[in-house]
Design a binder for these strands. Structure first.
Lengths: 252, 252
DNA sequence: GGGGAGAGATGCCGC
DNA sequence: GCGGCATTTCTCCCC
């Protein structure tokens, strides 16, 4: 790391303790090793990483590359820190299940302690649910004469994206996928269809997968079960969101 | 944020550009808003957040709470930054699919630019694969007389965790889950069993789910298909790891 | 709180 | 690259 003077481990321990007690945030960059035990066990030898402690107890450790943290602790974790053997030690534990993390810094290159003021949540569009809504409002995308009757229905037989009748009044189950439908999507559809059949005591229930594409194996299995694939692009965003959030258009 | 003096947006732009060009890392804390378009669309109004740019092109934006970033860009994203309308603007694009992120800071509270030296990878144990290995080496955990013949067998229809014969030489398919087995696990097992049946042209193939527990619905479906549940705790770690990595024992 | 399912999932491995 | 699938998945929704 190209940093001029390193803060002392003592001062870091003080700052970090202050952040923990005050439920504020702290970012530490330095040389450390990491142990985790809980849902699995892991050990990471010494190397330079970033540790991010949040006010809600979350701890995130990042290496120099990659999207995902190499180690972490969930919100509500309880942390403490101290100096031992000339190292800054951070211990975090999640009380409800006992999983814990230990980090040892032998050198801290920088430390920032701060509060974040932020009460804003994300506005987004383009989920699988948005796709189901689109199909509900444009049933011909599935098939001419399709009459949807419910959306994201939580039933005793599961969670069905779009449910309805075809033009011959046979029941129709539609499973949506935003990306390529996989073998999993087909088995999921099959499970719903069979459950509907047995619950309703009828034999003719049709199944559709609506997705932009489907893997060859999945298509084979789908057709083997007498189901159909309908190519549907997921919606990017919706008119109402576009109108409300004019900022969405300000991009670029 | 409790920071004494804020760096100028101009100096931040310079530092960030330097980090981008030099493929080093940069962390910025400040007040910003965020647009994303690509796999979905989203907008996040002004609020204080942390932006972390990595040398591999990864961009991660964190709010004050929660484990997951609120917005991000994958590795290999290409970023640029500049000042426009008295704001620090950061644009990131992933060339291969065109997804992009725009961040506008109207105030930067702190900025750290640095390199990370880290060539170390995680040593871990306790995955589903470790569980399959344990069952392969301790077949009686599944059933007296079980003879495993393969592990994580890759087939066209998926891969089978543990595959073998029972004491009567009937084929056995075992699906492992580290946590509670769900409906999905049962349909997955069923898919394997049926595929093995049709591929081998035999009718008697047995299915097991090995997991610490199973949901009531999943158990019902499992038994409806004539399969069996075996309660197995996932291994925490292995003797060879314990021996090689004595540091694993130094925890706490 | 548990069950069920999506996610801008991500990451890994095998073909 | 795609396919198939686990993940210390996480998060949300609904019962």
């Amino acid at each position: 790391m190209e940093v001029l003077k390193f803060p002392s481990l003592d001062s870091c321990s003080d700052a970090l303790s202050g952040a923990i007690n005050g439920r504020s945030c702290c970012i530490i960059g330095g040389n450390c090793r990491v142990w985790y035990t809980g849902r699995a066990e892991s050990y990471l030898e010494f190397g330079e990483r970033i540790l991010f402690l949040k006010g809600d107890g979350t701890v995130i450790i990042h290496q120099k590359e990659g999207n995902a943290p190499i180690n972490w602790m969930p919100a509500d974790s309880v942390s403490q820190c101290f100096i031992r053997d000339f190292k800054l030690v951070i211990l975090s534990t999640l009380p409800k299940d006992g999983q814990r993390l230990k980090v040892e810094f032998d050198r801290v290159n920088f430390l920032n302690s701060f509060r974040l003021e932020d009460g804003v949540t994300l506005v987004s569009a383009g989920s699988e649910k948005d796709m189901a809504i689109m199909l509900y409002n444009n049933p011909d995308l599935i098939e001419k004469g399709f009459k949807p009757i419910s959306l994201e229905e939580q039933t005793a037989f599961g969670f069905i994206d779009v449910f309805g009748y075809d033009k011959n009044n046979f029941l129709v189950v539609v499973e949506c996928k935003r990306y390529a439908a996989s073998l999993d999507a087909v088995t999921q559809l099959r499970r719903y269809v069979e459950k509907v059949k047995s619950m309703k005591g009828i034999d003719n229930v049709r199944g559709f997968i609506a997705a932009p594409k489907i893997s060859p194996n999945a298509l084979k299995m789908l057709e083997g079960w007498g189901f159909k694939f309908v190519k549907v692009e997921p919606p990017k965003y919706f008119e109402d969101i576009k109108k409300k959030q004019t900022t969405l258009k300000n991009f670029g």
